[in-house]
Amino acid sequence: MNRRNVLVGLGTIVAGGGAALGTGAFSTVTAERTVSVETAGDSDAFLALTAAEGAEDYVDTDGDTIEIDIGGDGDGINQDALTRFEELVEITNNGTNSVDISASIVESSDEADVLTLIEEFGEDNSLGGTESTTFGLAIELREAEVGSGTSYDEGDLTDDFDPTIEITAESTE
């Protein structure tokens, strides 16, 4: 083998190795993309929240977000009693993916234990596309259950009682 063949052979190996290892190699890419996001009111969103049938007196749907107002046509709920509203809000999955639903009360005071959710979220808390479920509320004002020494021991809610309900839907797909 002569010297020229050895140099051509080594050159071919180096060029081939460089092409095999160096193709498409980069360390940084910056690319700008546009994102379009639209919002919808609670009744039209991917996770729709509406008044359950018969709960229209307690669930205000006039704005873009619903509000639950237990005052109703009377002056309020009974003192020193347990009051249950079985179905207040209907949750409908308007999306195409199945979702797991959960809800919790975000307490606004230390004594918001008087309020609990009544959940009817179905098997495994899962909602497929176009499926619906409901939740309600129980308000416990019986002195034996609430305990004395709280602002609710007289069975009366004060002005600082304004909890928020947080509803979460996580895609299962």
Rank of each mutant, 00 (worst) to 15 (best):
S151T: 11
S132R: 03
A51I: 04
S104A: 11
E166Y: 06
E120Y: 11
S102H: 00
R142Y: 04
E86P: 06
E67S: 15
N97R: 01
G16M: 13
L21F: 12
T61C: 09
M1G: 12
S36L: 09
T83Y: 01
S132M: 01
E111A: 08
I66P: 06
V106W: 02
G63S: 15
N93D: 02
G16S: 14
S43E: 12
D156E: 11
A55V: 13
N94L: 02
T30H: 14
F121L: 07
D42I: 03
L141N: 09
V35Q: 14
G16Q: 10
G136R: 07
E32M: 10
A48Y: 03
V114Y: 14
E32C: 04
G122P: 03
G72L: 05
S126Y: 01
T50W: 00
E173D: 15
N97Q: 05
S151A: 12
V35R: 12
A138P: 02
L127M: 06
S102R: 02
L117Y: 09
T168V: 15
S132G: 01
G128H: 07
T158M: 02
T28S: 12
D159V: 09
S148P: 01
G54K: 14
L47H: 00
T133M: 02
G41N: 11
D162T: 13
A48P: 02
L127K: 07
S36K: 14
E119F: 04
T28W: 02
N93S: 05
G18D: 06
F135L: 07
F135S: 00
G18R: 07
